[in-house]
């Protein structure tokens, strides 16, 4: 963007407050936003975990047993519990924001937000059930 502050260019006495580094800590809605963004770290952690699991699987039953052993440690349980909370937060915020990015119009009228968000939740339950069924071994 070009700076074109015509008559104000030589105005020396404005006061401009510098945004604090901790701006996100000073307002609940900003803090909630940062938590939403930080959920991505736990998403990345999940991918790393999956990669370790897959690597262990390809190394044979002993490696797989070892990683399962690690998953039972209190540290791993705590980490995974926190990660689950954050990824759930991601899921919920993601679904709730979908209608805003993808409004649907039928007959010229915009559908209410919940009518776009609700199918996401339904699909989530269905997909979760299918994944669980495959993993647990239907």
């Amino acid at each position: 963007m070009k700076e074109t502050h015509n008559y104000t260019l030589y105005h020396p006495k404005w006061y401009r407050e510098r945004v604090s580094t901790y701006w996100w800590a000073r307002q609940w809605s900003y803090f909630r936003f940062i938590l939403r963004e930080l959920s991505s770290i736990f998403v990345a952690y999940f991918v790393v975990l999956i990669l370790f699991l897959l690597h262990a699987l390809s190394q044979g039953p002993e490696s797989y047993a070892a990683i399962q052993e690690w998953l039972r440690t209190p540290f791993a349980i705590t980490l995974n519990f926190i990660s689950l909370l954050f990824t759930l937060f991601h899921t919920i915020t993601w679904f709730n924001l979908t209608p805003r990015a993808m409004p649907v119009r039928i007959g010229g009228k915009r559908l209410p937000d919940w009518m776009i968000a609700a199918p996401n939740y339904v699909a989530w339950v269905v997909i979760s059930a299918i994944v669980a069924w495959f993993v647990i071994g239907g």
Partner: peptide, 20 residues
């Protein structure tokens, strides 16, 4: 208004917004 330069008391400088 936050994030704008203050000209005086409660009045902010809005040239930046006008240009945008």
């Amino acid at each position: 208004l936050r994030y704008f330069p203050v000209v005086r008391d409660l009045a902010v400088e809005m040239t930046d917004f006008m240009d945008k």
